[in-house]
Design a protein around this nucleic acid. Structure first.
Lengths: 343, 343
DNA sequence: CTTAGCACTCAACAGTCCTGAGTGCTAACA
DNA sequence: TGTTAGCACTCAGGACTGTTGAGTGCTAAG
């Protein structure tokens, strides 16, 4: 069955209505509210067609229709008109990023708070993967005999630190030497791209500090892996409780539970370098059971032309797609600018 | 009306029953389950007395009785027998703290996770107040021209860092000088006890670095205030959703909402140096509306003899007091030991 | 192809009844 | 005087019923 102009309009009306009311919509109310120029009976016929085609579902006989995931998908791809943020909104967003922020964590936290506040859904922001981050500065400081502080600063302005044991006979001078060598060899290189040749060089220069060096390298490795678990930020977690689809405690447990699983969230927010622009995952398209009645809108952001992370919004499938997409798009852009200029 | 032996036993039976079933308890079931040697009718009379005395409440006429806050209070103070952890439990807890942890945040996080896991309620841990923490090490490092990294390490093993702007003509040597002076003057002093005289000394020695110094001091100040907001840790936030008293979405919103308000949590967990041992706040005894149907069990922990923070468990007033108190007590002790030995 | 009309469906709501757990009171009993 | 059996009473909650209203599908006429 072909999808003609009128079916478009009916589907659009149904989805828009359902997005705002969260109630199954019937032919009469469509005919009343939206000026389609046909009677409810005609709309009914169209609705029956749309249901047969898989765009609509009926919760039970003689209830109104509800859009299916396929329906939302068609809506997002073919029907929806892109929303344009008002100037006031754009200014508000820009203002939020105006404050100077040296560390990327601050920026990311800001972003997730802002996103959730503006959309009233739950925001997710995936920060730069530490292992793809670039060394900017490494430093070891002797805190007291036998204890040193290792600090690593990345190009993105992430600071990681770790207190470690060092042999008791090590002085700050020794540590300075190690720091200097590490700095000169590692600076500008991505963590994951530190090659064996570089490590060999370091080893050669620091043959005397072998034990120490091994500890440091181990810590570097651990830091890479552990900190992966810390690069996801949430905003407005509880917003989801305001949605009528989460009125029931079991659903709340399930969704809030998954929001505590950083690993899963990281998988949800995964991106690849080829991705650009907005991605929308609707209901069943999502890889995890617990978010099958949710939609996820994500976008990647950049730093100096490189994709370094992604931001996203998680809401019910009955989501204000056009508005949300516009917001995500704009904030991505501002975020990318902020990250690229400041540093 | 006097509180005689039998009333004790009846009250005890009612509270124990209610704690496990979460259902109003009636005279018949008490007579059946607990061997009090009297008929339901007698128990009814006692219950009526206990209600008049304020230890019990009736949700509605002809329902069973439910303990009032006053009832729980009496139970905790006078009736309850202290629980003793099994050896297996004690060993399990000790094991969790066996791993060497240099930074206090790790230890605290561990503690809150462990507490919530063992109690199945929500755990709160308030870390050492940064402003009462003692300087251990301060260091400024030049990351690149015009940008420096300020790192502060406290006696408790807390590391704070901040990237800051410095005048472009500053070299690492200049920063070293500043670091050295700061270190020698501040080491061993609590943040809040840095006196004007000390600051004057620093000023005198670093008169040339005046601008820089002012920035650093400002950052120190900000760090103190901001980091206060980061010294509270939660574990098992969602455990509370398993309690039947939180079956309704509004209540869930309210309690989860308050658990996001770190300021309020900090107030809840406030302690003073005189406090030692366990504190139990039941229902209405709590200062905040949102936790009036909760009980909070807190205890302070020590580091080298000084009270440095508190740990707590938040659960429904219908809480397993004896078990929970025993757990909080033991974990406090292990935590204090861990913190005091390691460093 | 569109639409009016009509019979049909079903969730949601309100009302009714019943049951069972529980109470308070009273009078008899030890 | 304290304890207990008996009894009338209360009330939440579950089962059932009827009603309402929004909605559908089908058919026949326009």
């Amino acid at each position: 069955m072909p999808m003609d102009e009128r079916k478009h309009r009916v589907l659009q009306a149904i989805i828009q209505d359902y997005i705002t009311t969260a109630e199954p919509v019937g032919s009469r109310s469509i005919a009343r509210k939206y000026d389609l120029g046909v009677s409810p009976a005609t709309i009914r016929n169209e609705m029956a067609d749309l249901e047969e085609m898989g765009y609509l579902e009926q919760p039970y006989t003689s209830a109104g229709r509800v859009p299916s995931d396929k329906g939302y998908r068609f809506y997002v791809d073919c029907i929806m008109e892109k929303d344009q943020l008002s100037e006031a909104e754009e200014n508000f967003i820009k203002m939020q990023f105006a404050k100077k922020m040296e560390e990327i964590e601050e920026v990311i936290k800001k972003t997730s708070d802002l996103l959730s506040q503006l959309t009233q859904y739950t925001a997710l922001v995936l920060g730069p993967n530490l292992s793809s981050s670039i060394f900017r500065y490494v430093q070891m400081s002797l805190i007291e005999t036998g204890k040193a502080l290792l600090v690593i600063v990345t190009q993105t302005g992430s600071v990681k630190h770790k207190i470690m044991d060092v042999p008791a006979n090590f002085s700050q001078k020794d540590l300075n030497k190690v720091s200097m060598v590490l700095n000169s060899k590692l600076k500008g290189i991505a963590f994951e791209k530190v090659k064996k040749s570089v490590l060999d060089e370091i080893y050669n220069e620091l043959i005397k500090e072998k034990i120490l060096l091994e500890t440091v390298l181990e810590i570097l490795n651990n830091t890479l892996n552990n900190s992966n678990t810390e690069n996801i930020f949430l905003g407005g977690t509880l917003n989801i409780l305001n949605q009528p689809e989460f009125r029931d405690v079991e659903k709340i447990k399930s969704i809030l539970g998954i929001l505590e699983e950083k690993d899963i969230l990281r998988k949800l927010m995964q991106y690849n370098d080829k991705m650009d622009g907005i991605t929308v995952k609707i209901g069943e398209e999502n890889p995890f059971e617990e978010v099958r009645n949710c939609s996820l809108i994500t976008a990647t952001y950049h730093m100096n032309g490189e994709v370094v992370g992604s931001i996203g919004i998680l809401g019910p499938t009955r989501m204000k797609y056009s508005k949300t997409i516009a917001l995500v798009e704009y904030i991505t852009q501002v975020l990318s600018n902020t990250l690229s200029n400041g540093k």
